[in-house]
């Protein structure tokens, strides 16, 4: 299909079929690593080299006029929603009405308390998660809001959680800009 230009005068070379595994970290007997073996998927999993590949970047997100206010509000311990054309209140606020696509601009104070709509218990938190002890990721409907906000709830143990449980934000000691300016939510009372 594609016109090819292949060099015809490449020097002759002898194929080899065995590759010695001689590197200290991969000791052990010599193995035959022919491509036939490879393609027949008979290469044992431990024969294929593996290594960590980490992609990491500190993206800087331009917030625009709506999320800019929302995140600014968090630094003043205020929670803002925005009113849709239908009258419902979106939290977090969005720039455009998800139903009609219109630009939105009527901010509404919501919370700070709210109730759990659903949750998932995290018994073994991973390094970058908001808390270093077991916690719940919960969908929280803040008072005055018609949508839910996803955040961590520091409840100690799962048995204390229920649908409808009241929660309130615990503010970060040092606001850094971002959703973790709410350190997490905690059960009221």
């Amino acid at each position: 299909m594609i016109a090819l230009r292949v060099r015809q005068d490449a020097p002759p070379v002898e194929p080899i079929v065995a590759v010695r595994r001689s590197a200290p970290t991969h000791g052990g007997p010599m193995r035959r690593l022919t491509m036939e073996k490879v393609m027949a998927q008979t290469l044992a999993a431990d024969e294929v080299l593996r290594g960590p590949h980490v992609l990491e970047y500190p993206y800087r997100r331009s917030l625009g006029p709506v999320l800019g206010r929302f995140f600014g509000g968090l630094q003043e311990h205020r929670l803002l929603g925005i009113r849709m054309r239908s009258g419902k209140v979106l939290v977090p606020p969005q720039e455009y009405d998800p139903q009609t696509g219109e630009a939105l601009e009527e901010f509404v104070d919501v919370g700070p308390g709210g109730e759990i709509v659903s949750w998932s218990w995290v018994s073994k938190p991973r390094p970058k998660q908001p808390l270093d002890r077991p916690f719940a990721f919960a969908l929280i409907r803040l008072d005055g809001a018609d949508t839910t906000l996803l955040h961590a709830v520091d409840a100690g143990e799962e048995s204390k959680l229920s649908v409808g449980a009241r929660v309130t934000p615990r503010w970060a000691e040092e606001p850094g800009g971002g959703i973790l300016d709410i350190a997490c939510f905690e059960l009221e009372g």
Binding site: R61, S62, L63, G64, P65, V66, L67, Q94, E95, Y96
Partner: peptide, 12 residues
């Protein structure tokens, strides 16, 4: 740097 707009604002 169009830092005056969010990504949704830019495409809009």
């Amino acid at each position: 740097k169009r830092i005056d707009v969010s990504m949704p604002g830019l495409v809009r």
